[in-house]
């Protein structure tokens, strides 16, 4: 990834998880710009702002107060402006049906939050790299489904 940065946003209401997330990226040697939002409302406000830089990958926690991950997912998918954003659901365990449902609703990636920091780094690194591949090799984003 040359001079380009991968722009990443995480929407999660948990302070510790946000910290883990940003720390992980700090330790990874990938050129990324990481932003966090504290809940769904903050996220949508940011995205809807005129001059906001849209993220390449959006990590979305499901359980957030006021506006949860699924609601955000629907809103984002409904807006053509956000078509290029790769959406990764980043959540604590869910049932199989629920996971499949998030894919059907338009999520590209589902990640179960790991309970090991190194594992987290590995996962995030992989997601970013994978995304990069899609981005640079003209692969079909609509078929981009990934689960960890």
């Amino acid at each position: 990834m040359e001079k380009e940065y991968m722009h990443i946003i995480l929407a999660d209401d948990d302070e510790d998880d946000r910290m883990f997330f940003t720390d992980a990226f700090d330790e990874l040697k990938i050129s990324t710009k990481v932003q966090t939002c504290n809940d769904g409302v903050e996220l949508m406000n940011y995205l809807n702002k005129e001059d906001s830089i849209l993220p390449n990958v959006l990590f979305l926690d499901l359980n957030m107060p006021m506006k949860n991950g699924i609601e955000c997912l629907h809103e984002i998918k409904a807006d053509r402006r956000f078509d290029d954003i790769v959406i990764a659901i980043y959540s604590t365990s869910s049932s199989e049906e629920h996971i499949e449902e998030t894919f059907i609703c338009g999520a590209n990636i589902y990640i179960k939050k790991p309970s090991d920091f190194n594992e987290l780094k590995r996962v995030l690194s992989y997601v970013v790299t994978l995304n990069w591949q899609y981005h640079t090799s003209g692969l079909n984003k609509d078929n981009f489904l990934f689960r960890m």
Binding site: F103, I104, C105, G106, N143, L145, F146, R147, M148
Partner: peptide
């Protein structure tokens, strides 16, 4: 590579198309 089975993949894309996404 993807973390899901081919059949699950097909299912999801089919469901997406049904819901017009």
């Amino acid at each position: 590579t993807t973390g899901i089975t081919p059949s699950a993949f097909l299912r999801i894309i089919a469901s997406r198309r049904e819901r017009n996404l």
